[in-house]
């Protein structure tokens, strides 16, 4: 994948962002209701006509729609996401304050999920029915648990009954354990199912037999040969992982009373704070575009056979040929 292709990808990403921004702008216009009342609103408010007029002028609601749209795009182009209706401060500042907690939570959860998935898959692939069956049932259970319920379960056991971990806040590392687990477990369960099935296919390949014949230990075969071949299907799961993490934070941050983008998004949606909703939507779109780009760039690294083909072709090749060929590189590296 050369520079030109990366450029095309990035341009497409900008297109996606523009589309998301325009759709959100239109959605705000179509949604009934006067945003001025959302700003000085709430059922307990009683704003005077002067206050409402002030708000309309300050936020430019008194301007024609087209003028509002052009101004809005102009601001977006220079990285200004507007002013939150609810918090009355710049959206970029709001997101800046909240992103740290979410990155920390999602990062730890992603790491936990990856480690758990790899460890469980490597140790349970092609094992006896008790180990393998046990693992798959637990995975099925976790993968189908709603994170709200799972979180309450973890809280009940580790906070309320055993008093091992705090139930609120993100004051220290201990407070991160339960929310990260809540977020990671369902993702880990799905990843480890995918990884195990792909690992099991690889382990039946002739080159594995060759490797064993050369006297490699079972562990070495699984980790050095099996795992490396199984990573490609896992990489294609990245979109799912990112989606799971971003979506999951909405529930997990609220449940565990943590600062973060998910909780901010929830509050913004409830209060019809469209600039913040839009900010989070755009940020998520950018994260998706970047993550997918990075994954595309990683395919040739994970599988050197793909060095000369494009990412899209790579995906097709992988899907078509998954685990059906032995590779020279693998033999050599062993």
């Amino acid at each position: 994948m050369d520079v030109a292709k990366i450029g095309v990808r990035l341009a497409a990403g900008v297109g996606v962002a523009w589309g998301a921004a325009t759709l959100t702008f239109l959605a705000v216009q179509i949604t009934p209701g006067d945003p001025a009342y959302a700003i000085v609103g709430g059922p307990e408010a009683n704003p005077s006509p002067e206050v409402i007029a002030q708000v309309r002028a300050e936020y430019g609601f008194d301007q024609p729609l087209l003028v509002q749209y052009v101004r809005y795009l102009g601001r977006l182009a220079v990285g200004d996401l507007g002013t939150s209706y609810r918090l009355q401060s710049p959206v970029t500042q709001v997101l800046g304050e909240q992103i740290g907690g979410t990155v920390q939570l999602a990062g730890v959860a992603a790491l936990l999920a990856a480690v758990l998935a790899v460890v469980v898959a490597v140790f349970t692939a092609r094992r006896g029915p008790v180990v393998r069956g046990g693992a798959t049932s637990i995975e099925l259970f976790l993968a189908s648990s709603p994170s709200f319920w799972l979180g309450i379960l973890l809280l009940s056991v580790f906070s309320y009954a055993l008093h091992w971990l705090p139930s609120v806040g993100n004051a220290d590392g201990r407070a991160l354990v339960l929310p990260a687990l809540t977020l990671a477990l369902p993702i880990a369960a799905v990843l480890s199912q995918v990884l195990r099935s792909s690992l099991e296919e690889v382990l039946e390949q002739p080159f594995i037999t060759t490797a064993r014949a050369r006297g490699l230990s079972d562990a070495a075969v699984r980790v050095r040969h099996g795992l490396r071949h199984s990573l490609i299907p896992l990489a294609t799961m990245t979109g799912f992982v990112v989606g799971g993490l971003l979506g999951g934070t909405v529930i997990v941050e609220s449940l565990f009373t943590r600062q973060g983008l998910g909780r901010t998004l929830l509050a913004a949606v409830n209060a019809k704070d469209m600039p913040v909703v839009l900010g989070v939507v755009l940020l998520s779109a950018v994260v998706y575009v970047v993550v997918n780009l990075v994954v595309d760039l990683l395919y040739p690294v994970l599988d050197p056979r793909l060095k000369t083909v494009t990412a899209t072709e790579a995906r097709e090749t992988v899907t078509a040929n998954e685990g059906t060929e032995t590779t020279e590189t693998e033999e050599v590296s062993a």
Binding site: I152, L155, Y160, P166, S167, V168, S254, L255, F256
Partner: peptide, 19 residues
């Protein structure tokens, strides 16, 4: 002051000495 959205978490947090 901590803002706890979930009723059950707020109540059990009191019992568990988080509040």
């Amino acid at each position: 002051f901590t803002f706890v959205p979930e009723d059950a978490v707020r109540y059990n947090g009191l019992l568990a000495d988080d509040f």
